[in-house]
């Protein structure tokens, strides 16, 4: 990609700002639907950073898989479980918040210190593969990464079957005692949740 240095800096600053503010919104906003849409914005901005890093194929994969599949899946899950409920008060909520925030800030300062203190061996930019990266990824996937590539397909199949098995509701087509066909809607209505405390 050949855009001017100043443009690159402006793009990087804007995308980083959107990522950080969006991620904070994802974890801090009350309404979970806003969080899901902000998550889509974060994914798009990460794809923009990938474009700045000369990786057009991964940027496209990011947009397709994360924004197109995972974000939509999360929105559907929110629609299916969206119930206004008042959360029960928790003991030691403030001290839990305090401890976890301290841990996160400590980890962040550690990571930033490592990032800034270590001198990374930067490769020669003239050897950069640049726009040919898609071809190189294809070569990798069908030579030295062939086994993980094939295993990934099995993993996706297993995840698909597992998701179907986990999410489907058991339905009976026949009444066990009489053998007559049953009314599915009645089962749906009478199917009480199993693990609620009855008191």
């Amino acid at each position: 990609m050949s855009i001017a240095v100043t443009t690159q800096f402006i793009c990087f600053a804007v995308l980083s700002l959107v990522i950080i503010v969006g991620a904070l919104g994802v974890v801090l906003l009350e309404n979970i639907v806003y969080s899901a849409f902000l998550l889509g914005g974060v994914f798009m901005s990460v794809a923009g950073l990938y474009l700045l890093l000369n990786a057009s194929f991964v940027a496209a994969a990011q947009v397709l898989v994360y924004v197109g599949a995972i974000n939509v899946l999360i929105l559907f899950a929110i629609m299916l479980v969206n119930k206004k409920e008042d959360l029960k008060p928790m003991k030691y909520l403030n001290s839990r918040r305090l401890i976890s925030t301290t841990i996160c800030i400590t980890l962040l300062s550690l990571l930033i210190r490592v990032d800034l203190s270590k001198v990374w061996k930067i490769a020669n930019p003239n050897l950069s593969i640049g726009e040919e990266s898609t071809v190189r990824i294809g070569e990798h996937l069908f030579s030295d990464y062939l086994l993980p590539f094939e295993v990934a397909s099995v993993l996706l199949l297993m995840a698909m079957i597992g998701a179907i098995v986990l999410a489907r509701r058991d339905v009976l087509t026949k009444d066990i005692s009489t053998g007559l066909p049953v009314d599915q809607e009645l089962i749906e209505k009478s199917d009480k949740p199993l693990l609620i405390k009855k008191n």
Partner: peptide, 25 residues
């Protein structure tokens, strides 16, 4: 920047993340 193996790794991470999201939800 010549043998971009990190990009291949991130494609695998994206794949596993998709599977994880489906099973998690």
């Amino acid at each position: 920047n010549n043998l971009i193996q990190g990009q291949v790794f991130s494609i695998f991470v994206i794949t596993v993340a998709a599977a994880e999201a489906a099973v998690g939800l």
